[in-house]
Simulated scan of single mutants.
Amino acid sequence: MDAEVISTGLLREAVDAGLLTMHEVKNQISASTARLLHENHRIKNAPIVDLDDENADTLRKFFLIYYDIRAIILELVLKLDAMRHLLHLPQHQKFSLEVMKIYAPLAHAVGARTLSLELEDIAFKSLFPYSYFYVDAWLRCHEKENKSRINVCKDKLL
């Protein structure tokens, strides 16, 4: 991330709280930071009408076509931060569904695979806690077995 994206991420909260205006950001920091902040606000305030698969796919394509990729990545990082503090959010089920349907696939589409995986993992845990713990327990139970298989494959390849 460049300095412009980092400063936009920090300034977003100040602008949301009303401590700064976009005009002040443009005059005191830079026009390009104000433009990126404006792009990020447009993404943040994008109307999410319905979360069926077709609408979610259309919205992801819309983001990829019409927005600065840095603003998209910034929004994804801010969504991840919110997901990490999910229990403190009201209506976290709706938020998790939105992340699972729109933002995790969007992160995958922009090439942020690690970000996508973490968003999916936290959203799945929030939406389906019993299934998540069942799968997690199963994976932990078979962890030693899988590690030995991986080591055998590594030895064959080397």
Results as ranks from 00 to 15, higher is better:
24 E>I: 03
104 A>G: 00
33 T>S: 01
117 L>Q: 09
93 Q>V: 13
94 K>G: 11
36 L>W: 00
55 N>F: 11
51 L>C: 11
149 R>M: 06
137 A>I: 12
5 V>W: 02
18 G>M: 03
44 K>Y: 15
86 L>F: 04
76 L>R: 03
20 L>E: 03
33 T>P: 00
122 I>K: 00
104 A>L: 01
139 L>D: 08
102 I>M: 14
78 L>C: 11
12 R>V: 06
21 T>N: 08
12 R>L: 07
132 Y>W: 13
37 L>K: 00
81 D>M: 13
86 L>Y: 08
113 R>T: 10
146 N>M: 04
90 P>N: 12
58 T>D: 15
10 L>F: 07
62 F>M: 04
118 E>V: 14
50 D>Y: 15
86 L>T: 06
82 A>S: 02
27 N>M: 07
119 L>E: 05
72 I>A: 10
150 I>N: 05
9 G>Y: 01
30 S>H: 00
132 Y>P: 05
147 K>A: 07
140 R>A: 07
127 L>M: 14
104 A>C: 03
60 R>S: 12
85 H>G: 08
26 K>H: 04
39 E>F: 01
123 A>N: 07
80 L>E: 06
45 N>M: 13
87 L>W: 14
151 N>Q: 10
134 Y>N: 13
48 I>D: 11
60 R>Y: 09
147 K>F: 08
138 W>C: 13
74 L>T: 00
99 V>Q: 12
41 H>R: 11
115 L>R: 00
143 E>L: 09
138 W>Y: 11
24 E>M: 05
141 C>K: 09
122 I>A: 00
152 V>G: 09
82 A>Q: 04
81 D>T: 15
95 F>M: 13
36 L>N: 02
72 I>T: 09
104 A>W: 00
119 L>I: 10
72 I>S: 08
15 V>A: 05
133 F>E: 05
65 I>Q: 06
41 H>V: 08
3 A>I: 09
106 L>E: 01
126 S>R: 13
